[in-house]
Amino acid sequence: MNIVVLVKLVPDTYSERKLSDTDHTLDRDSADAVLDEINERAVEEALQLKEAHGGEVTALCVGPDRAVDAVRKALQMGADKAVHVSDAALHGSDVITTAKVLAKAVGTIDGVDLVIAGNEASDGRAGAVPAILAELLGLPQLTHANKVTVEGDTITVERATDDGVLHLQATLPALVSVSEKINEPRYPSFKGIMAAKKKPITTLTVADLGLDPAGVGLSGAWTAVLEAAPKPPRTAGERVEDNGDGGTKIAEYLVGQKLI
């Protein structure tokens, strides 16, 4: 089974995340960057399926040069090869453009049976790229998966949302997005880290994909940010020690605030 797993480099949520003052895009230099946690689970799921069914795992990333770190982490975990679409023209791409570029890039990989993504990226949080990609590639979408099973060319998934659990079924080729609860990602072993150095990474530009650079990035986006401003941070209010009356003190505070 040939699997493409979509990996994204995101600002570490432990560091401060900002928008750039000039064009309101994500200020990627102000924060440490990491492979998005949910994508580690997507890679893990791809590797488990490969271990069970054979085949090859290709990591695919659209992002600036430093995003190659996300790709490398996937290779260290055990992916076989990678495709990295990197082009200055992509700066400021919106959700639709990102999905279009990903769709073209998936198209450069032969015989894809399954595309696996995270259900939501921790920076943009659109939660829509996998669905849009399914639309563009004409694949069934089995998204927000807690559990994935493949038998022959039938894929079944447990989808967990607020409304409960849905049992989903479709025929390969298909697209899956995984939820935070699907598995525990493995750590790259020393051997994996060494092996990753020799694994091939294909770097592509927008033009390589047959797309017009003017149609992507900030200029090609179908949405525009009009203004952006940081919110003043919250400040600490009153703090008391509990001397056996902590609950009463809170109640008095809530009464004062007309909250009870």
């Binding site: 259900n119 939660g127 669905a131 849009i132 179908w222």
Partner: peptide, 20 residues
């Protein structure tokens, strides 16, 4: 979760931008 997916697919199908 579902609404975000529906919206994304509608937007790309009708060639329109998406606000999330």
């Amino acid at each position: 979760l579902e609404g975000k997916e529906v919206a994304g697919r509608v937007a790309v199908r009708i060639d329109s931008g998406l606000l999330v």
